[in-house]
Design a protein around this nucleic acid. Structure first.
Lengths: 249, 249
DNA sequence: AAGTGGTCTAGACCACCAT
DNA sequence: TGGTGGTCTAGACCACTTA
């Protein structure tokens, strides 16, 4: 013992950073699934042959990233999405007065197709790769507010069926998590204003040419790997897209 | 010397939490000003009579909260808003391809007036209260992209002049910080889609009725006190509003 | 060279949970 | 009772900045 080295004994960077990366990789590989416990700090310290303090520092950062959750006396677990923790997290469309209501989803279309240029680029796929594509209509208190076109890699989401989508209990991201062990941890949205056209305008109960929000969202899992592309049109006549930010990162 | 207590020797909660609170209070009292160094970890450890590791843990959290900034070899400093650290934080309009460019601001109008219903509600003022109102045009690479109408309480921002605004070096929030000691720490934005009308459409180089983003932003300081109301119209023909969210809170 | 933050260790005891 | 995470210590050496 008493190795007392500060920076490394291989590769580069601090040990705890490399341990963090290795843990992230094992998370991404599916070795530990959402809501499962990872090995105890003591065991990891033995496995990596470092002090417990170093393991704790690696885990500290993963906890800060909301990738792991500690529970004193029980263990450290893989963070998972729940209805509450999730829906209101990445779903930002609320009533005009700021109150939140649960949206009701209606599946309008479902098919497998080939990725065009735009879809392929966002999902890091080759053009022409097989993708699952479905369209949703979201209504809040009976009023249509959002049309979603969702694209997934057919490879990654093998055996993805219309039934799976229709009969799920929770959010779509819970479906990815529970059926495919894919945990969405980051989202990037690009928002523009557009004029609604024929079919979508009607779905949203708007006249042709009415202004709507056009949102292109990419969802990522561990290691910045894209999971889902979603293109949404939002009717903001009686709803708003609410974005709150604290001084952070 | 080996006191080895875990929770406390007075009050409640872990020592590092109480040290964090005390440091925060001394920060708030103005004992250390933005960009000044706080005492070294060694000195603080002596002062509080705890191990350096405990001080580090307290400072770790303040750094995570972006209240302090560490610089190896130099010291630990009180975080301040700077051009970089700030502008790109609450300013989300970027080029179509995702690249960020510094916007150029042009002051179009400046006057003091009475708060109408909407302004008063957002700023927690009485209707008719005196407010500062100014209008900005933001251009990115020469192209007009955003018109801002900004409202401030004339009471809180006493002696706020056109010159102050025109001759400031950094961002507007730096101005609030440096001249009024008001630190914006949270922002809430309500985004809708709208059709641009006469004067604003022209300013943005758009035909009347063109779809634009209409953003109503409220900026808050400590204690959820509203500081500024800003109404923006954004031309998204060649720019997008980029919103990135990690799994958080 | 002196001082600062950055990393790491080895071991102590506490608080909490399951059994 | 045994295992887990939570806090704290005392001291080592590294990396960086300043003078």
């Amino acid at each position: 013992m008493a190795r007392n080295f500060a920076s490394s004994d291989m590769a580069h960077g601090p040990i705890y950073k490399r341990i963090k990366n290795q843990l992230t990789e094992r998370l991404a590989s599916g070795e530990w699934k959402p809501n499962e416990a990872i090995p105890s700090e003591t065991r990891l310290a033995q496995e990596f042959d470092v002090s417990i303090g170093t393991i704790r520092k690696a885990i500290d950062e993963l906890v800060a990233d909301k990738i792991l959750v500690r529970q004193q006396g029980r263990g450290t677990f893989v963070a998972a999405h729940t209805q509450d923790r999730f829906l209101y997290h990445f779903f930002h469309v609320v009533n005009e007065d700021g109150t939140r209501r649960l949206p009701v989803t209606e599946l309008l279309a479902f098919r497998k197709e080939r990725a065009d240029e735009g879809v392929a680029r966002r999902l890091f796929l080759d053009r022409g790769a097989r993708v699952v594509h479905f369209r949703n209509l979201l209504c809040i208190e009976g009023a249509p507010v959002e049309v979603n076109d969702v694209y997934l890699s057919a490879d990654r989401f093998a055996d993805f069926t219309r039934d799976l989508l229709a009969n799920r209990p929770g959010t779509i991201y819970q479906l990815y998590q529970d059926h495919y062990g894919i945990n969405v941890i980051r989202i990037s949205e690009r928002i523009r204003s557009a004029a609604a056209q024929h079919p979508e305008a009607q779905l949203l109960g708007l006249p042709g040419g009415a202004p709507v929000l056009a949102i292109e969202r990419t969802a990522f899992t561990y290691g910045e790997a894209p999971v889902e592309l979603r293109r949404s049109l939002v009717n903001t006549e009686h709803h708003v897209y609410l974005n709150e930010m604290a001084k952070q990162v």
